[in-house]
Nucleic acid binder design. Structure first.
Lengths: 214, 214
DNA sequence: TAGATTGTTAATCGATTAACAATC
DNA sequence: TAGATTGTTAATCGATTAACAATC
């Protein structure tokens, strides 16, 4: 959903899915020092047709210029704004197992404007530890912490069995979105956004594609 | 691509994307002891309309029975076969950083029929170690190992800068598919399948959805 | 200005849903 | 048999591509 000239326009989900990729490649072009790029060239890089790229972008504004193309920096910043990155999001992580620890150490999110403030776990052996500058707290403090620290994203990296329970806690504490790594389809109120990273599903799709070739 | 009654049929990508989810929920139902299920009930569980579910399944065969529904176990096994799980896939992991270690410890894949045989890294401090029963080898041995051990999937969990190089090595060693966790769009020959887990893109989509609500 | 490339409308393609005859 | 539910065709909806006038 977006507001444009007073009207409320719904952005097609297919478009939303492609935006992060556009943003990532624009970042790379920027780093390389590329100043401008045409929809044809950029489409080739991101694997999308030129008209589709133009249509996608025009959902959010007219960022290009006829006869010239798109200014890389301007487009990069415009997309960042569209995706809400310019205003940093505070996050907490729940579940400090192997995957949780990997997420704590990931540098990619910070670069893109996401702040991981702290982590929670139920395991007393982990509680109190500091990993990569991130303190691990007891999960009984989750509710209070989320309320006190303007947290809007909760990351779930707990086992399957407890994922729904953790989601409930995050929601009632007031997060706006959940980034879920447990292989579960969470039930949440419809005003809460969920993005799933069901890794095994990717592996199964890969398997399907491989077998299809044989 | 699939062969049915002599004809070669292309399966819509939208269908392929949904199959792993179907399979996962069938597994849960099976565990719960559910014997049969109608397309209406199952569609509700997986978040898909009943006719769509029936259409999806009918790309691969007629698994249901009028007036009865679908036998859960039969459908579960049928989908496993469709996705090529019944014949186990051998995998190697490249990159034993935080994420790589998390992948080594993940139990989910093994359950679904994937064998991780070994891991490779360039870091001498890691080479020789054994993590969760998985030996870490020097990456110079990658080519030989893949050739000798009937490996068909390579997992890439190395930093962005070396991902393409690792992909090239995996391809020339003979893998059929790559499961890629580096935030890069790999260039590979078209007969090689790639499945990307670009985690940060999920987070950006989540951010977009959240800001859209506000 | 002429050439290039956008923004946007119309045409096509693919995916989803509706409807219902077939059949267990 | 009657009721339920599939498999499948036709209708609708959404997403992609083609085409071109607008314009830098």
């Amino acid at each position: 959903m977006i507001h444009k000239e007073g009207k409320t326009i719904v952005i097609p989900t297919a478009v939303i899915k492609r935006l992060p990729k556009y943003h990532r490649h624009l970042g790379k072009l920027l780093k390389k020092g590329v100043e401008k790029i045409s929809s044809r060239e950029f489409g080739e890089i991101v694997g999308v047709s030129a008209p589709q790229l133009r249509q996608d972008l025009n959902h959010f504004g007219n960022f290009g210029q006829q006869g010239y193309g798109y200014n890389v920096e301007k487009l990069y910043n415009a997309l960042a704004k569209v995706m809400g990155i310019e205003k940093k999001s505070n996050m907490v992580l729940v579940g400090v197992g192997n995957l949780g620890q990997a997420l704590i150490s990931a540098t990619d999110f910070k670069r893109r404007g996401f702040n991981l403030l702290t982590a929670f776990d139920i395991n007393p052996r982990l509680v109190g530890m500091t990993i990569n500058g991130i303190k691990v707290r007891d999960i009984i403090n989750l509710d209070q912490y989320v309320k006190d620290n303007d947290i809007n994203i909760g990351i779930i990296a707990v086992p399957e069995e407890s994922a729904q329970d953790v989601a409930n806690q995050l929601v009632s504490a007031g997060v706006k979105g959940i980034w879920n790594f447990a292989p579960v389809d969470l039930k949440v109120p419809k005003e809460i956004s969920v993005e799933n990273e069901h890794l095994t599903e990717g592996l199964l799709r890969l398997s399907f594609k491989i077998k299809g070739e044989m």
